[in-house]
Amino acid sequence: MPDTAILLEVLVIVVKVSVICGILFGLPLPLTWLERKVAGHIQVRLGPWRVGPHGVLQPFADMVKLLIKEDIVPDRADKFLFKLAPLLSMIPAFLVFVAIPFGEKFAIPFIGNEITLYISDMNVGILYILAIGGLGIYGMILGGWASNSKYSLLGGLRSSAQMISYEVSMSFAAIGVVMLTDSLNLLEMVRSQSGSFLDWNIFYLPVGPVWFVIFMISALAEINRIPFDLPEDEGTLAAGFHTEYSGMRFSFFMLAEYVAMVTIAVLTVVMFLGGWNPPLDISIFHLVPPIFWFLGKVVLFIYFFMWLRFTLPRYRYDQLMAIGWKVLIPLSLVTILVTGLMKI
């Protein structure tokens, strides 16, 4: 019965798409709460507390507030680009998730069909992610320019220069991982790291740790998190490129940022920390479903980003560009040559 098979396949895709959409649109809610709670406790205060127990309902209150805020478009702004920019920033951030695998195939208990834990298994997964993720820059620079405000213009320019600079070292770090695993496919990357934690790319001596550090630093700059959150340097630039945005359009930029943070955490786990492979190849660890290992590692990284944010000061702009162009890029070019030497 080919018709039922096709129908089932379509159904599975629709379910997967809805689950991913649900996760991505819902995820910023707990993340904003967690971020403010972590901030509070690091700064020895309580954080959100009033709305619901321990303030857990705070993100919902924020959501309602953002929905009923006025959507202001400045008089002298380029109206079309101003309205387009948040979408250009948000949609690519969401599209990246198509290529990300969450686990191997597994059989559903009652139907007996095999289901894959990714929407699309592209054989150029890592290139797709870098390419689509890079499109988000258009949203920033167009938003900054179209607002016709000085803060926005300067913020947009700064952000785009920062992001394209670190895009280069991030691509080089991706090249390093591609060389270690011999594949552009994210599933293959995870498979090649199976075994104990010593088989993970981060422990691929001597180059693994170097690639990890290069990737981590450029990723922090790509997602505009402290210590590299120059685009939103409130001391000098108000809110940077999104100074003039309000209400829903503003929240699109915020959503894109949170989704990018999750993407980077997931990518780090897939590329360097063995994906859903347990840390030791012993039977008791295989009893835990692989997805829990995966999510555990991702949550660890998200917490790490938040921890950094409330611990480190911000770099100056010239320092930021110097780290990118004078340290990370030469270092990664040399490391490519060393990695190549090891692979032959």
Binding site: I13, V17, S18, C21, F25, D71, I91, V98, I119, S120
Partner: peptide, 27 residues
């Protein structure tokens, strides 16, 4: 492998559009 991508793209665009319409109506 590309047609699920198209489905996903359409779903994201629809959701984003719905959010914009909702905020336009409520704002």
């Amino acid at each position: 492998p590309l047609w699920p991508l198209a489905v996903y793209f359409v779903a994201v665009v629809i959701l984003v559009g719905a959010m914009l319409v909702l905020s336009h109506a409520l704002g």
